[in-house]
Design a protein around this nucleic acid. Structure first.
Lengths: 343, 343
DNA sequence: ATGAAAGCGCTAACAA
DNA sequence: TTGTTAGCGCTTTCAT
């Protein structure tokens, strides 16, 4: 697109001063006393000509793009839009722009997309990628890239991350089901290579044991990714084992949605026969059939915090907090009900 | 982020040739016969050093960013992720990157965000913005920007656009309700300054009239934007008029969802008392309570087509098709049922 | 208080 | 077949 844009030189000529002076004024560099009179004239003509600094030239000069790459596994998963909005809002405040990279849930894509983002010279990378790619992360860091993780963390905490308290969240869900009289509770676990999947699974076990209920191995199924389809398949698998249960704690909302399908398919109904809880309180989870009881986490806020952490990294603001924690809470809706005795 | 990246010069020095030769080889410019021997050595060392062309320098030189701005009203509206994915997929094939701008449904934001995108020197603008901003569009074009519209069009067709056949879609919905025995059909119309809102309204009127049913003015409500809240308020307004109706055609899915709320609030139920149809077949519309009967449009494909049109514009490929039309079809689900007589 | 000049990394027109 | 050079628009160091 070849639009003629006013340059520093244009402004300088019109003002009959040297271009470096214009630059100083427009960026109000101090230490260079410029007469108010000249400064004023410069500012006025700049506005008049609609001068905007050319981002290419600027970036080339200062070697920064003022963009940050945001890697997500799947934009269609409703939890990501709010996160992204949060990131964008915060970034925008500081003049940065987010560049999205979507892996379509494919691991092989991850590396390729990160390369694309790096090629674009993003000043940092926010990874909201659900999939494990520790070596990828590590290599980014080794190359000197700034990295912030969302909803996952590396075991050794070497990387800044924004996470929610999965342990507390799952405990609330289990607690709620227990309060409703459920004892045979199944768990549809997320992928164990992902920190959320792993931590939620551990939390489930712990919460059950705390109640003196040793969770039955046969009532736990592991999914390969967070999708409706996996949730459906997993619960279907549990039904086939023919061990009774009256409730299921799904590791996230999409999985829970898949459980709905499996329950219907089995000729049962939720919550009458089986109660279901999700995790994330994604948009529209209150509109499903039935409205989903789930653990709410502040998605938008997590995005903002991730962006803040990234900006601190980029701007070298000292910040010892590596892990930014955010608090979940339970939202009780229609997918859970009192236990009607054993099934 | 200060990572040392190999430059053309680095490669040139290592190969003991002039940097311009390296440039030629790496961009395989023809017309400059370079001996295979040298070319090979250059390619090898470039790979070895991990050379990537610096996008700032390149963009500065050729005055193009290889990015296109994508303006949407609200990322949280589930119809946009598929559209955006479609855009990104196509753009990526040609080495372009999308830069998102979200107006949060606020008109005032629109101009500001377009300015931001322009400041970033995007090579074009894809506007999926629901809100009217004809003068904005016009000014973009006047300034020489490439513009493609999604799901809206200017009256005079001066701008490339990708639209679906709203007339056909609404006709199918109305037809379906008529077939189910409904006669008193209400319409929750979208904003009339938006082409979809306007066209769907006209299509509704026409479809009814074709059946000899003069639509009752009192059974039509207009919304200010496409949101659940507006749909809820609008249907609520209709209930207050106390004219009976047994079905409602909503101008989009979000509006339909709002109708669900109003129906429940009125102590009625869908589809037993009132049938509801939506428009867009947005993700998850099959998971609602009840699953929504709606008009499906190929969102991902629309995104791709918009991107293709944009690339043609940028690359100056001749293309006389200004309007790219896409065909909708009806998806019958649980929110519509046979009419149980007048209410 | 202001000007001059170098150079970020690249491409393209011109030379040899 | 390969080299030289100017210059995209900007910031910054040094000079005046």
């Amino acid at each position: 697109m070849a639009r003629a844009r006013a340059t520093l030189r244009d402004v300088a000529e019109r003002c009959d001063v040297h271009l470096s002076t214009v630059s100083r004024v427009l960026n109000n560099k101090k230490g260079y006393a410029v007469s108010e009179e000249v400064a004023d004239r410069i500012r006025r003509t700049a506005a008049e000509l609609g001068y905007k600094t050319n981002p290419f030239a600027y970036s080339l000069r200062v070697n920064r793009s003022f963009t940050v790459g945001v890697l997500i596994p799947d934009l269609s998963n409703p939890i990501f839009p709010p996160i992204i909005r949060g990131i964008e809002h915060r970034l925008e405040q500081s003049g940065y722009t987010a560049i999205l990279g979507d892996t379509d849930n494919r691991v092989e894509e991850e590396r390729r997309i990160v390369e694309r983002l790096k090629a674009r010279q993003t000043d940092g990378l926010i990874l909201a990628t659900a999939h494990r790619a520790d070596d990828l992360i590590r290599s980014c860091i080794d190359e000197g890239y700034h990295v912030v993780l969302i909803n996952r963390s590396l075991d050794d905490d070497a990387v800044a991350s924004v996470v929610n308290d999965d342990g507390a969240g799952i405990a609330m869900a289990v607690r709620h089901l227990l309060d409703q009289g459920h004892r045979k509770i199944a768990h549809i676990a997320g992928p164990q290579e992902i920190s959320t999947g792993f931590r939620r699974y551990l939390a489930f076990m712990e919460a059950m044991q705390k109640e003196g209920l040793d969770p039955d191995e046969d009532l736990i199924a592991f999914c390969h990714n967070y999708s409706e389809k996996e949730g459906w398949a997993a619960l279907r698998g549990l039904f086939e084992r023919e061990k009774p249960f009256t409730a299921v704690v799904a590791a996230n909302d999409l999985l829970a949605l898949g459980c709905y399908d499996a329950i219907i398919e089995a000729g049962l109904s939720c919550p009458e026969d089986i109660s279901v809880t999700g995790y994330n309180d994604m948009p529209f989870s209150d509109k499903f059939k039935p409205p989903l009881t789930t653990v709410h986490i502040p998605l938008h806020k997590m995005g903002e915090e991730a962006a803040s952490a990234m900006l601190k990294l980029i701007e070298q603001t000292p910040d010892k907090t590596r892990q930014h924690r955010v608090t979940p809470h339970l939202v009780v809706r229609g997918s859970t009900a009192r236990c009607n005795g054993p099934r």
